[in-house]
Amino acid sequence: MTVPMEYYLGLSTILFGLGALGVLVRRNIIVVLMCIELMLNAVNLAFVALGRNLQLLDGQVIPVFVMAVAAAEAAVALALVICLFRLKGTLDADEVSGMRG
């Protein structure tokens, strides 16, 4: 008795939406990065569910690449956060307004 693929896509959508909401709403830069990781995880779930539904192995190979790129992204982003913290002394995304964003 397998779960239909639409349920997995719905769960993936909910997780992606929560992650995007966190990116827009939270102040802490580290939490924003964690929400980006959550969005990547949601996309991975969609890949695996679609791969099972279409009987293709691509759905299980592409998440491996996503994980590798996410690991590199997390390392670089956290190094930037450390540099930013030493420069500004804060982790508040609203305080870092050098580009008038």
């Binding site: 827009l24 709403v25 939270r26 102040r27 802490n28 580290i30 990065l33 964690m34 990781e37 996410a70 690991a71 997390a74 390392a75 956290l78 956060v81 450390i82 913290f85 804060t90 982790l91 508040d92 995304a93 609203d94």
Partner: peptide
């Protein structure tokens, strides 16, 4: 690996509560 990296940076920066109201 990735979450240990995150926790490492959180601990390194001291974990200050920068969120005043929780939202922007």
């Amino acid at each position: 690996a990735v979450m240990v990296l995150f926790l490492f940076v959180i601990m390194l920066l001291g974990g200050q509560p920068v969120e005043r109201a929780g939202e922007r």
